[in-house]
Design a protein around this nucleic acid. Structure first.
Lengths: 225, 225
DNA sequence: GCCTGATTTTGAACATGTTCAACGTCTCGT
DNA sequence: ACGAGACGTTGAACATGTTCAAAATCAGGC
C-alpha cells in the first residue's frame, strides 16, 4: 500500500468514525482534517468533495455484505431463501450506519451525483452487486422463464434498491419493519417468478422484459465529468 | 390576500423564475432577495430555508396537473387510457422544470426533509394526489378484485412516484424516454389489474394487499418538528 | 394622537464547503 | 549531487446558506 493510499484510508476511516459519532452534517471537513492530522486543503486533494467520502461507506458495506453472503450462498439452494437471507444480511451489516445512512441517500437520489447508484461512476459497484444477484439466482433451484432469466438479476437489484429506500425511512428498532418487508416480499417474488412460465403470463412477461430492454438502463446516465 | 401572503407569493415567484433561469444551485438566496426587493433575512422570515421554497414548485405543478386532468377524466372512461394520459399530462406540465427538477429530488429523498413525498408535512398534498388516482380508477370501466381496489390508488401513486424518479434521471429530449416508459407500462399494469381476479392470482394478490396493509404507510414517518 | 406590544424588516456576523496560489518534498535522469 | 518536474501540502480567502440582535413598522386600546 503506497503512502497515498494510506492517506486516503486514513481520511475515510476518520470521516466514517466522525460521521458515526456526530452524524454527517455535524461533521465538518475541518474536523475531519484536524482529526486525521492534515490540512483541509489536503483532504480536498484526495477527495473532490465531502460527498465523495461517502463512497468509502459504500465500499465498506459492500465488502462486508459480500463476505456475509459467501457463507449463505454456499449452503442454501432454495431461491427464495437465498434472496431473503442475502437481503437480511445486508440489513444486518448496514444497521450500525442507519442513523446517519439516511443523510447519504440525499445525495444518492441526485442523478447528477456520482454517488447515485445509477450513475456512470457507480457502474463498477453496481455491476458487482448485480453479479451477486445473478449468483443468488443461477445457483438456486428456481425454474424461470428463459427470457425473464436474463434480466432478472437486474430486476432483483432494483428490488434491492427499493428495499434500501424503504430502509432509510425505517425508524423501527433493529429495522424490524424493513425485515418484515423483506421476509414477506421475497416469497411473493419467488411465486411470481415461478408463475412467469404460465401461459397467461407469458405474453405479459415477454412485453415487460422487452420494455426493460428497450429502456436500456436509465435513459441517459450522467456523463462522467 | 393579505400583505403577508403577497410577500410569500412574490418570493416564490421570484425564486422559481431564477431557478428556471440559472438552476437551483446557481441561484443564491441573496439574488432571490435582491430580485424580490427585500433583504435576505426577510426571506428567511417567510421561508425557513432555501429548500422550503421548493414547496412552491410542488404546489404549482400539482395545481396545473389537476387542471389538466379535469378535461381528460371527464371524457375518457378506459382505465388504461385515463392513467396513461394523466401521467403524460404530468410530464407535459413538469417539462419546463426538468433541467433543475432533479435538484429538488435530492431533498425529496431525504426522509428527514419535510419535502419528502412520504413525510408527514406532505400528507395533505399526497392525499390529494392519491385521491386523483382514485378518480382515475373509480370512474373508469376497469374490473378489479375487491380487495385490491381499496389499496390500488395508493399503489398507483407509488407507481407515479417511480415514474417521477425515472423522469429526474431522464436526459432525453422532450422526456421522450419517460413518455415511452409510461405508454408501455400502463398497458402492462392495466392487464395485471385485470388478471388480479383470476384464480391463480387470487392468493398472491391477497397476500400482497395484506402485506401492504400491515406495513401501514412508510414504517414510521418522520415526526413533525 | 400616543403608547404598547406584535409583527416585520434589516444587514452584519457566522458556519462551513470549496478553491487556489504559493510552498515543500520526493523522484529520477544525468 | 543537482536540477527539473511531478506530486503533495498548506492555510488564507471565498461563496453562500443561515442566524440574530436591533431597528422599523404596524395594529389596536386609551
Amino acid at each position: 500500500m503506497t503512502k497515498s493510499e494510506q492517506t486516503r484510508s486514513l481520511i475515510v476511516d476518520t470521516a466514517l468514525r466522525l460521521f458515526a459519532e456526530r452524524g454527517y452534517d455535524k461533521t465538518t471537513m475541518r474536523a475531519i482534517a484536524t482529526e486525521a492530522g492534515l490540512s483541509v486543503g489536503n483532504a480536498y486533494y484526495y477527495f473532490g468533495s465531502k460527498e465523495h467520502l461517502i463512497q468509502g461507506f459504500y465500499d465498506r458495506i459492500q465488502e462486508l455484505h459480500f463476505a456475509a453472503c459467501a457463507e449463505i450462498l454456499a449452503t442454501e439452494t432454495d431461491f427464495e431463501t437465498r434472496m431473503r437471507r442475502m437481503l437480511l444480511a445486508w440489513v444486518d451489516i448496514a444497521e450500525p450506519y442507519r442513523a446517519f445512512g439516511a443523510q447519504f441517500f440525499r445525495n444518492a437520489a441526485d442523478p447528477a451525483s456520482p454517488l447515485s447508484p445509477f450513475s456512470v461512476e457507480s457502474t463498477e459497484v453496481r455491476n458487482r452487486h448485480i453479479a451477486l444477484h445473478s449468483t443468488v439466482l443461477n445457483e438456486s433451484t428456481a425454474k424461470v422463464d428463459g427470457e425473464l432469466r436474463e434480466v432478472l438479476p437486474e430486476l432483483m437489484w432494483l428490488y434491492h434498491m427499493t428495499v434500501v429506500l424503504y430502509w432509510v425511512h425505517d425508524r423501527s428498532p433493529h429495522s424490524a419493519t424493513t425485515r418484515m418487508l423483506i421476509s414477506r416480499t421475497t416469497p411473493l417474488i419467488a411465486r411470481l417468478v415461478g408463475l412467469s412460465r404460465l401461459k397467461v403470463f407469458r405474453t405479459i412477461t415477454r412485453d415487460g422484459v422487452q420494455l426493460f430492454r428497450d429502456l436500456g438502463w436509465f435513459p441517459s446516465p450522467p456523463k462522467p465529468e
